[in-house]
Amino acid sequence: MSDTTKAKPASTPQGFFDKHYHVLRRLHSLTGIVPIGVFLIAHLTTNSSLLWGKWGLRHEGHDETIVSGGVHYFWKEVQWINNQIPHLLLIEIGLWLAIAFHSVLGVYYARSGKSNTARYAYQGNWRYRMQRLSGYVALLYIFYHIATLRWGWSFLVPGGAKWSADFAASTLAAALRGSNEGFTAMGIAVSLFYFVGITASVYHFANGLWTAAITWGLTISQQAQQRWGFASFALGVGLMGMAWASLAGALLTKPSEMQRIELQLLQEKGKGGAMPGEGAALVDATPLVNVPSDPEGTQPAAGGS
């Protein structure tokens, strides 16, 4: 074998990948689950409250509609995340780094294979292909999602809405619709992109959970792999339901209507009613509630959800 082995200089990227091959591979697998996958579960739970919030608030004696309960519960969750979690920004940066790491290596690994589903149209082979495709889609989607809603790159948002924690649901909905009222053409495109993006992300995570158990050697026998396959599938179906519920919750109500509810919440909590930054222009056209003047900072809290 020695005659076929040529030592490569260790300074090349190839050399770096080869030297730390195993650790990088397994860190890639691990980051897909912790923290990214775990965050995905928490994130979809929060976001889907836009649809199930009404029931979440019942024990507090509220009797709300699905829409007001959803906006209310989601608003509470987002407020909690932004005000109660210590070092939120540090946690977020850790998460972004993990996503960047997993994505860069993911693209590198995905490019090392050559799909052959045309010849070998087995289910497993399709899952393999979709795992790579959904990775690429998730990469584009997650980048757009974070850049627009978290980093405030509103030039990428049709209608220019800027997300704010005080107007969590309405600014999200406005970013999806492209306006504070009906859907614009670009808004429909963004909403469809969201649908494809979250669907790909959930598939990718669920299938990744299944393959990760093989990678680490947790499931060995065919039966064990199959059992874990069912479990991953069930988790995937549940998460897909939550992902679609989140999107439905964000799309089914007009942002202006959501904003009316949020203004009430802000007034009740004594936070006054700061209009969301860039989205304000959209709102001003249709004043729905009289906004009391706000002595303390008029800037809405920015933060993640």
């Binding site: 990948f17 080869d18 091959y21 195993h22 591979r25 397994r26 690994y109 090392s112 294979g113 052959n116 070998y120 087995y122 497993g124 082979n125 899952r127 393999y128 292909r129 795992q131 790579r132 393959t211 093989i214 990678t215």
Partner: peptide, 16 residues
């Protein structure tokens, strides 16, 4: 190491 078992992408065509 490089080219080892971690390179497998779990398409599972081999077993088929």
């Amino acid at each position: 190491g490089p080219g080892g078992v971690n390179d497998c992408g779990n398409a599972q065509n081999c077993v088929k």
